[in-house]
Amino acid sequence: MMNLIQSITSKVPSLPLFATSESRQASGAAEAGTSTGISGTSGTPGKEKAGKQLRMETRDLTVRYGSTVGVKNVSLPIYDNQVLALIGPSGCGKTTYLRALNRMHDLTRGASVTGSVLLDGKNIYDSEVNPVIIRRRIGMVFQKPTPFPTMSIYDNVVAGLKLVGIRKRSVLDVVCERALKQAALFDEVKDRLKSPGSSLSGGQQQRLSIARALAVGPEVLLMDEPTSSLDPQSTSRIEDLIHELKNQVTIVIVTHNMQQAARVSDNTAFFYVGDLIEYGPTSTLFTKPKETRTEEYITGRFG
């Protein structure tokens, strides 16, 4: 049985959706194989990687909407298997920055992006890069749960795979179970995979959205206020999930909730009116912020 699963999962990364470049194909097989969580392969790749490794990086990233500048010259490192939290008052540019990380602004009329966003050292805004493939490598979860309402739980999870022509039932089954387990939802829904996704509670729907994002095997997961529409208990589950997922993927999370940023992240970036004010390890930023504005914001004096 294990051999079967391994042969299936080892096939998955060789499918076109996982690979953009040769280097990715080479490392992709190894990574997708280990990050499945179902295979018998040993080890947790994330934890064993020594030190901090850059997964993404932005250099002088500027995002404009028409004549308005949403994000100004932001350079930030995004480390592998760590959680980066973006905090700041409304309108500070944190969501704008997040959306630039997987080229979501391509879809916004009048938006323009300058500077670079590097994924494994390669600028994702280069003309030869296919944004669709970028969005598979860099997945996104939104503020409100976004299950496809007419689809079953199962179909929701595998939607991304079907989209690229993977229809083999045995592959889809394995990926679906793996993704639901990664999203800590499997045990709650395993007996009703055929029920509509919209039949789940809000917290479950959000975990379903996360499972769907994970199904295509992303390396980076962007989360835009993933718990702002959830109750405290569901919020806590998602936070635990973030803690577990970071062994497998790199996470960037935007949150209005400063305490949440403090709880879940390794590094924090504080934005204010489009500027990056301060970036550093979360524990330092929340105990010894360097900038007065950071101190004022995290102590609740403005924002």
């Binding site: 305490q259 403090a262 709880r263 979360t282 524990s283 929340f286 105990t287």
Partner: peptide, 9 residues
Amino acid sequence: CIHLIATQQ
């Protein structure tokens, strides 16, 4: 301890 108080409420 300071880290936990500051980040984990």
